[in-house]
Design a binder for these strands. Sequence first.
DNA 1: TTCTACATGTAATGAGTTACATGATTAC
DNA 2: GTAATCATGTAACTCATTACATGTAGAA
Lengths: 186, 186
Amino acid sequence: MSLRYALLGLLVEKPATGYQLHQQFKEKRVYFWHAHHTQIYRELNRMEADEWVTSEVIPQEDLPDKKVYTVTETGRKELTNWVLHEASHPPNIKDEFLVRVAAFHTISTEQAIQLLQEIRTGYQYGVEQTRQWRNEQFGNQLPSPQEIGDYLTSEYGVRYTQTWVEWCDWAIETLKQLKEEGPCEK
Amino acid sequence: MSLRYALLGLLVEKPATGYQLHQQFKEKRVYFWHAHHTQIYRELNRMEADEWVTSEVIPQEDLPDKKVYTVTETGRKELTNWVLHEASHPPNIKDEFLVRVAAFHTISTEQAIQLLQEIRTGYQYGVEQTRQWRNEQFGNQLPSPQEIGDYLTSEYGVRYTQTWVEWCDWAIETLKQLKEEGPCEK
DNA sequence: TTCTACATGTAATGAGTTACATGATTAC
DNA sequence: GTAATCATGTAACTCATTACATGTAGAA
C-alpha cells in the first residue's frame, strides 16, 4: 500500500507523468524505495479510480503523448493522514549480498575478500553520487520548507552508503587478520 | 529466488525445522532478510521436490511432530555456486518511514520531530539488542571459520542501526534549527 | 483466563517482476 | 548500426502477506 503514498509524496510537490515519477524514484528515492515502471502505471490508474489523483493527456510533437497526474484534495488529505497516523512498520529488508556474506564459510577467504572489494566499489560510487546530488541541490544553503524531505533523506543516503563502505573495509581487514592468525592460534 | 539460498545458508550449518529457520531469521537475519513462516514452509517443500534438501519427521511427546530438513550434496553445491558466481543486484529497499520523511512538508515541524523521536527509540533498542547478541556469541574472541558469516553480518547490524540513531539525532537537530532560523532568515 | 511458545500448513489476495509491444529522436 | 531517451501500457507469472485452521503446555 505504501507505493501509493510514495507516489503521492512526489505528486504533491508537482504534477508529473508516470515516466517522470519513475525517474524521480531512481534519482532521489534509491535508498528507501523502489518500484518498477509497470507497477507505477498500474497504481496510478487505481489512484485515479479512487479519485486521489486526476489526469490530463498532453499531446506532444515528435514525442509520444504524455499523461500528467495531479493530486486531488482527497489525495492530499489521505497523504497527511497516513504520514501522521499510520504506524511505521520496521522495513522488511532483503539484501542478497548479506545472504552471501552469511554463507562465507562455504567459500575461501580470498574469494570472500574479492566479493567484498567488488561491492565496496559500488557503494563508494554511491557515496560520491549522492554527495554530488546533495551539493547540486542545496550547496551550503539551508533547504526551503518544501525541500526539507529531500534534504533529510539525501543525508540518510550519504550515511547509509558511507556505512557500507566502512563496513566493507572493516570486513576485509577482519578476514585478512583471521587468515594470518587462524591456522596458528586455533 | 534468494529465499532458497538464505534457507540453505542456515541449513548447511545445522539441520533444522521450518519453525526453527523462521526463528533464526528473526534472530540473526533481521537486518538483511525477512520471510514469513508460510513462505518458508512452501519454499522448503519446493526445495525437497528439487532434491536440494531431504526431510525426516520426528514424533514428539506432548508437542506436535516436527519435520527436520537436511541439505543434500546438490543443495551444498548450488549454494556455493550461487555465493560465488551469481551477480549481486543492489537491494530494492522499501522503507516506509523514509517515505514519510520525504513528505515531511505536509506536517508541522513539531509533529515531524515527534515521529523521529519515536523511530529513534526503536533503533536505539536495536543497537543494544544486536550488541548484546554479538557479545553473547563472541565476547572478545575471534570467530571460528564456521561462525565468520554471523560475525560479519552482526557487525553490519550494529553499524546499520547505529547509523539510524545518529541520523535521527542529526535530523531532529536540523529541524529544530530550521524552526528557529526559518521565519527570520528567509 | 489470557498470552506465549511450540509446530505446520492451506487459500485467497495483493505486490512485484518479466516478457512483450510500439515508435520517434538523438548521440556515439 | 547500435544504444539510449522519451512515453505508456498489457498479460502472464512469481513472490509475499493475511486470514484461517488446529492443538497442547506452561507461565502470568
